[in-house]
Amino acid sequence: MNVAKPILELVAITKQFGSFVALKGVDIEIAPGSVTCIVGPSGSGKSTLLRTINGLEEIDGGAVFFKGEMIGQTVRGQHRVPVSSKQARLQKLNFGMVFQTFNLFPNRTVMENVTLAPITVRGHSRKSARAAALQLLERVGLEHKKDRYPNELSGGQQQRVAIARALAMEPEILLFDEPTSALDPELVGEVLAVIKSLAEQGSTMLIVTHEMAFAQDVADEVVMMADGEVIERGSPKQVVHNSSHQRAREFFSSVVAS
């Protein structure tokens, strides 16, 4: 895994909310085709980190490199300036995001949710966008719901549509922020199954999750965060069982036991 050139590098990322430091210099590299699970206690900065990657949160220091190219800012002389809003929008297309609360567009059908961006942003024809969307919906097992509105679906189904919507833009990296923690326990499995199948097909993914069993199952690497820092990284086995860090051991004994 360390042989391949990283597709995504986070270098010394810092982020402040007022005087509160949410990220204190985070370094992570992601290999192409790898699955990285980010775990850690609530408030440790996992969501914030994920959101800085696709620009939903502006960083205060450090940089994000995608395929070796800095995103979000450009160097101008001795300093950096933010890229134009149009370019920022284009850079975002490298990432697909799946939210904890799905955030489907409630005023659009399932099909429209999936095709809106491919048609208006990528300029695909209606017909080809619909055909592609249908394939994606099939992949998440929801082609028969294509004309429904989101509020007519269960939480698990909504999240699977959200995954299809993210996939429709053919992103290079998928970001998941606790994709199952808003779901009833019996609906968690169907969403994790979809994510796992994506992992098996070689998608590059970053997943913030509290599902430790799932992380051990699919992750190539587990990153453990606490108080805005990465305190442990490695293979799932390494991190969960032989954790050298006291805080990490405490965290795992609490979540694995439950």
Partner: peptide
């Protein structure tokens, strides 16, 4: 109409039962 009994998650590469993951 919400919960259709026939519905299940099928994925191209594999179908995983809930139990495998949880």
């Amino acid at each position: 109409e919400q919960r259709e009994p026939t519905e299940k998650v099928e994925t191209r590469t594999s179908t995983i039962a809930d139990g495998d993951i949880r």
